[in-house]
Design a protein around this nucleic acid. Structure first.
Length: 422
RNA sequence: CUUCUGUGGAUCAUCCGG
């Protein structure tokens, strides 16, 4: 059973969720009895690959075959609920853990705090963090806890509160590790606070923590976003020469840096350098190039390369289509955009709210409000959950056509969808 | 503590104003 568990885990990690389910059937056929490890691994792995419903039904299945879920099971479910944005269910699973006589642990709480941060509730996460200190030794926050909350605060723009937490962490004698340093340094440098970023970097070196690829990439990203592409290039050269070796994300970051400066040629050249150094481009590499083509009105080229990338075995993602859809809309090729959006399902992708909003905005700006409204009301058919941006977009569209009445109607609909105007 | 499961750091698309 350990052998099967190990392989199931590996398959899931490689994106082969269907195969792992198949193997699960095989092991049962061969009278190998799954354990709680097997179920935990599958629940985790299925969700990792987007099969959240299957994950949930496996949880029910394990109950019905008499395998007791453990704290790992519940933590995984908390994570899944957080990923789906369902905080209520996440808390319900936390309570269910206790009701079952199990003890949530530090991982459970870290998972929950991470979920809170991803939902933009870093302050709530911070409160939970300080509560953990009061709950006793079993829940003593660790480096993961602090990295999670510090990162969440940074994303919310509360950099200074993040720095205070860093100090607090040190005062609890928790050793900062490379994760915390990367997070803070990325945050500081992205905010233009280079002096502090660099002094933290020296502190890190003094403590004998070596900069890794992620650390370098974080700094490179801040440089690129600030237009300092030449410095980014110097760092890349140093990496290629002395290590740590850059990975696809490092290259993608710089490719995007060139695109931000409308330097498409250099972006394309860097893709070649990437390949020459044995780093395989991925969907993000192409997305970045496509963004560049679309920015200079050459969506056509992106459309052509869409096929190339598939030939290279790289699957376009929903973001790829978002970029191309936006390009088409900007070039007023709305019929093409509409048919591409409709075709997403056939291409094995679920339209999401961002892609939907892109098309909606395109219709609002280019054509009559009518077509936009038609799409808007079809959100349900596409299983797209409207968000506040959808409403902002359509309201703006209403005003563009001078339809104040519809604008007001849409404004009122915001709250009936459980959203609030921002 | 012979092997298997859960948590944290870096890159890409959408709304208004400027």
């Amino acid at each position: 059973v350990v052998t099967y568990n190990t392989v199931i885990h590996g398959l899931c990690k490689e994106g082969l969720a269907q195969e792992s389910l198949e193997l699960f059937r095989v092991m049962k056929d061969k009278q190998v009895i799954p354990t709680v490890f097997t179920y935990n691994t599958l629940i985790w792995g299925l969700s990792l690959n987007g099969y959240d419903d299957n994950a949930r039904s496996l949880f029910e299945e394990m109950e019905s075959v008499g395998i007791e879920p453990d704290v790992v099971t519940y933590t995984t479910l908390v994570k899944i609920m957080c990923k789906l944005g369902n905080l209520v269910e996440a808390y319900r699973f936390l309570e269910a853990t206790i009701e079952r006589g199990l003890k949530p642990d530090i991982v459970t709480y870290n998972t929950l705090m991470n979920g809170l941060c991803e939902m933009g509730k870093a302050t709530k996460a911070m409160q939970l963090l300080s509560k953990m200190h009061e709950l006793g030794d079993h829940f003593k926050p660790d480096a993961v806890s602090y990295t999670t909350v510090i990162g969440g605060l940074c994303k919310d723009g509360s950099l200074d509160r993040a720095l205070l937490l860093y100090v607090e962490m040190i005062s609890y004698s928790i050793k900062p590790d490379i994760h915390i340093y990367s997070s803070l340094i990325h945050c500081l440098s992205s905010a233009g606070r280079w002096e502090e970023a660099m002094s933290l970097l020296s502190e890190m070196k003094e403590k004998g923590v070596m900069a890794d690829c992620v650390m370098y990439t974080a700094v490179i990203d801040a440089l690129c976003k600030d237009g300092k592409i030449q410095t980014a290039g110097i760092l890349l050269d140093k990496m290629l020469k002395d290590g740590p070796q850059p990975n696809a994300i490092t290259f993608n970051t710089i490719i995007d840096g060139f695109v931000l400066l409308n330097n498409i040629q250099e972006a394309e050249d860097l893709l070649k350098v990437m390949k020459a150094n044995g780093v395989s481009p991925d969907a993000v590499s192409y997305n970045n190039l496509f963004k560049g083509y679309c920015k200079c009105g050459n969506t056509q080229r992106a459309l052509e390369m869409l096929n190339n990338m598939t030939d290279e075995g790289i699957k376009p993602t929903i973001i790829t289509y978002g970029i191309v859809l936006r390009g088409l809309c900007k070039e007023n090729k709305l019929e093409l955009a509409k048919s591409m959006f409709d075709d997403l399902k056939n291409r094995g992708l679920h339209p999401n709210v961002v892609a939907f909003n892109i098309l909606l905005d395109g219709l609002c700006k280019a054509k009559s409000l009518e077509e936009a409204l038609e799409l808007f009301y079809k959100a349900g058919e596409y299983s797209v959950e409207l968000d506040i941006i959808s409403f902002n977009t359509i309201i703006d569209g209403c005003f563009r056509s001078g339809n104040l009445q519809m604008a007001s109607k849409m404004f009122d609909e915001i709250s009936s969808k459980g959203l609030s105007p921002n």
